[in-house]
Every structure is written in structure tokens, then in C-alpha cells.
Amino acid sequence: MSVHSEIEEKGKAALNQILEAQSLEQLDGFRVSVLGKKGSLSEALKQLGQVPAEERPKLGALANEWKARIEAAIESKKNDLESLKIEADLKKTRIDVTLPARKVHLGALHPITRTIRKISETLGRIGFDVTTGPEVETDFMNFEAVNIPKDHPARDMQDTFFLGPGVVLRSQTSPVQMRTMREEKWPIRILCPGAVYRCDSDATHSPMFHQIEGLWVDKKVSMADLKGVLDFFAKETFGSQVKIRLRPSYFPFVEPGAEVDVSCAICAGRNPHCQVCKGTGWLEILGAGMVHPRLFELAGYSPNEVSGFAFGMGVERIAMLLHDIPDLRLMFQGDERFLKQF
């Protein structure tokens, strides 16, 4: 057989083998057996020395051409085989991605904490700062310092828990007002959130609940300022469409005093059967007023120099409105079904 035909034959045979290769390993084997040092093509080329010199370049070119064709075929087959392998692997590693996630248990802040923060953040923007005080208070701080002397009929307004002579569980956050005024000089702009206690328990009363109290004392503070602050608070909390309404009322620590309603954000007074406002169009949310001069005297301020306003609200009440919570008692049961929703 001529060298020429031997190259052709071996080349063709190699191409056939490559096309039939089943695996990357087999393919690699063919590469060695054809192109390797002792491979069939290399062996054929070794015979070049025996052919006449003038034929050598031609045969050399032919051999190189075959070599290139075989390499190209190997490369192409290799790609095919690799793709097939990946395809097979993909099938093997398929998972049901709709199975449940390995989700972590999500934490949550109590709606009371959230509400206190929301209120503090809102009013913080117009200058209020948060401060707190003790929950066990003296009778003096809880009552007398907020202008409710002994035997004052206003003591009927609050059923207080007693711990000893002159010691009570505070029935309101107002004592923080006096504590702050006695510690600091005016101007004062504080919010006092915290737990308070009254002997009362049903779906709308809890023996422990939370209040947040605001106090602003400065020169020339007016009742119009109080209205402005409350209007801002109500709009930020319940939506820019709500209005506030002040009704004259009485709290011994303010004069004039007011109860403050916000317009019902649900029905705006248009639904006589509204569950939230009971068809009145208004929701009572807080008590407020101008600080009684007696408090300034007790704090060591001159009532002729300063004036101020104060307001206080039940945090649970606001939280219940914000989150549609139907029963106050849910707040204190530690029930995960409740807590996880916030």
C-alpha cells in the first residue's frame, strides 16, 4: 500500500472511530491511538522517509491536513459529549423547587413598642424627645404634683393600686412631667411613654396598660400651638385626610382642658353603621390642655414666665386603631398567633 493511501485509510478509520465514541475517556483514548507518538497516523508518517524526496512535501501536507481534520473532529465530539454529560447531570440534580423553604423563624416587635416608636418618631420630628420615669410612684408625684390633692373628687376618675402609705403604681404617665420639670430648665419638649396601672379589667380596660404623654413648656406657648401639634400628630398617624376636634373637658393638671377626637379614617362619618366610630364619625384618642399654673409652681417655674401644653393618650387605643385589634387582652397574653402578625 502506498504511503498516501495508508494515510488516507488510517485517517478515515480514525474519523469513524471518533464519531462513534461514547465517552470522553474513550475519545481521549482515540486521540492517543491516532495522534499520539505511537499513534496510527504518527506511525504512517514515520514511513515518509521511505518515499522519494519530491513526494514528501505533498504527503506531509496530506498528513497535516488529516491531523487537523481529526483534531477538529475530536474537539467537536468532545463538545457533544460534554453537553450530553451536563444534560445528564442536570437531570440527576433536579430538585422540586416548590418544596418548603428552610425559612428562619421571623421575630417581631410588640404592637405597643411599634406604636410608641411610631408616635415618638412622628413627634420627634417637631422637637420632642423621649424620657421615662418609674412605674412605682409616690402619691405626691402621681396625684398632688399633677394638681390632684387628697380628697379631690378627681381621684374618683382613677382607681389606683396602692403599695403602701403614699406609694402607688402610677395611674398615669404624668408624674414624669413633674420629675422632668424639676430636673431640667425650660424649654421642655418631652414625650413620656410607659406602663400605667388602674384597677379595671374588661375587653376595653386592662389593669396594666400604656400611655404616652407629651409636654411642651416655653415662653408664650399657646393653645393654638397645642392644636397644631395634635393636628400634625393625627395626620401623620392616621392619614392626611383626618381632622381633629377638641372638646372642652377637665383634667386637674391642665386648664383649659380638652378631649381630642380624630375623624374616622374608615368612614369619615359617612357610614352610620361603621364598626370603628360607631357611626359618630369621630374617635376619641387623647386628652390634652394647657399646663395648669399650679404645676409650674410645684416645679419651681414662674407661671408668669412660661406657659405650656400637655397631652396624653392610651397607646393600646392607638395600637388597636392602627392594627384593627379587637380585644385589649390580646396584648398581654404572649400568644404567638398574635405576636407574629406585627
Binding site: A224, G228, V229, D231, L246, P256, A258
Partner: peptide, 19 residues
């Protein structure tokens, strides 16, 4: 001041933001 305010109506008091 309260007698005055409640007679003219609390609604008649303007709303301002304190300085």
C-alpha cells in the same frame, strides 16, 4: 380662658406649630 374658649368654641382656635 377656658370659659372664653369653650363659649367661642374650641374649633375657633387656630392651629399653629410652636416655635
Amino acid at each position: 380662658a377656658e370659659e372664653l374658649a369653650r363659649t367661642i368654641g374650641y374649633d375657633a382656635i387656630p392651629a399653629t406649630i410652636p416655635v
